[in-house]
Amino acid sequence: MNFSTINWLAIVVAALSAFMVGGLWYSNILFGKVWMADSNLDTETIRAGNKGKIFGFTAIFSLIMAANLAMFLNDPKTDVQWGTIAGLLAGVWAFSAIAIHSLFELKSWRYILVNGGYSIVSLTIMGAILGAWR
């Protein structure tokens, strides 16, 4: 693998896009209330969480996901269309893993759709960014 053809700035931007999508996705505007209810969480419990740990590891894992997707897209023929499709396919893969784990944890389909849907949307956007910014 030729790492010199990887756009590391695009990886950082793609990872940041997952934060933006997550901030909206898990807000009360979209699915925050549903996600909290199906996760058996309340506002106090969330406020008591270690924000440094949560956001720090989220940043690390978002960077890993973006870098991994960029490596799969590391081809001169990659464009925004292929990046978007590859991101969508990676999102379906992630959705499936979330569904499997959640089914064994006896989570609801609503929970699976919220968390899996986030993976599909965020990875699709990551792929679009990485494909467009070669």
Rank of each mutant, 00 (worst) to 15 (best):
A15H: 10
D79K: 02
I112V: 15
L24M: 07
W8M: 05
I46C: 02
V80W: 14
A59F: 15
K33F: 05
V34F: 11
M20T: 11
G127Y: 15
F104A: 04
A59T: 12
I85A: 11
I6D: 01
V92H: 03
V80Y: 13
F104K: 04
I85V: 11
Y118E: 07
P76S: 09
N115G: 09
L130H: 07
M1K: 08
T5G: 04
F95W: 10
A37V: 08
A128R: 11
N50S: 09
A132Q: 04
I29S: 08
A97F: 12
M1Y: 13
F95K: 07
Y26H: 02
D75S: 14
F31T: 01
L41K: 13
L113C: 11
L63K: 11
I120Y: 02
L41F: 03
L123D: 06
G83W: 08
G22R: 00
N74F: 05
G131C: 01
L9I: 14
Y111S: 07
K53D: 01
F19C: 02
F3D: 10
H101Y: 11
S4M: 12
L30I: 08
G56N: 03
A48K: 15
F95V: 12
W109E: 06
L103N: 13
I129K: 05
L30N: 12
K53I: 00
W25Q: 08
L123V: 00
F95M: 09
I29V: 14
I60N: 03
S62I: 02
S119D: 10
L69I: 13
V12W: 14
S108A: 12
G52L: 02
V80T: 13
G23Y: 03
A99H: 01
F57Q: 08
K33Q: 03
N7W: 00
K77G: 08
G131F: 06
A18H: 15
G23K: 05
E105I: 03
G116F: 08
I60G: 04
N68C: 13
A66M: 01
P76G: 09
Q81M: 13
I129T: 06
D75F: 14
G49M: 15
F3Y: 14
N40M: 10
I129Q: 01
G32R: 06
M126V: 07
G32Y: 07
F72L: 12
G91A: 06
L9W: 14
N7Q: 05
N115L: 02
Y26K: 00
T58F: 10
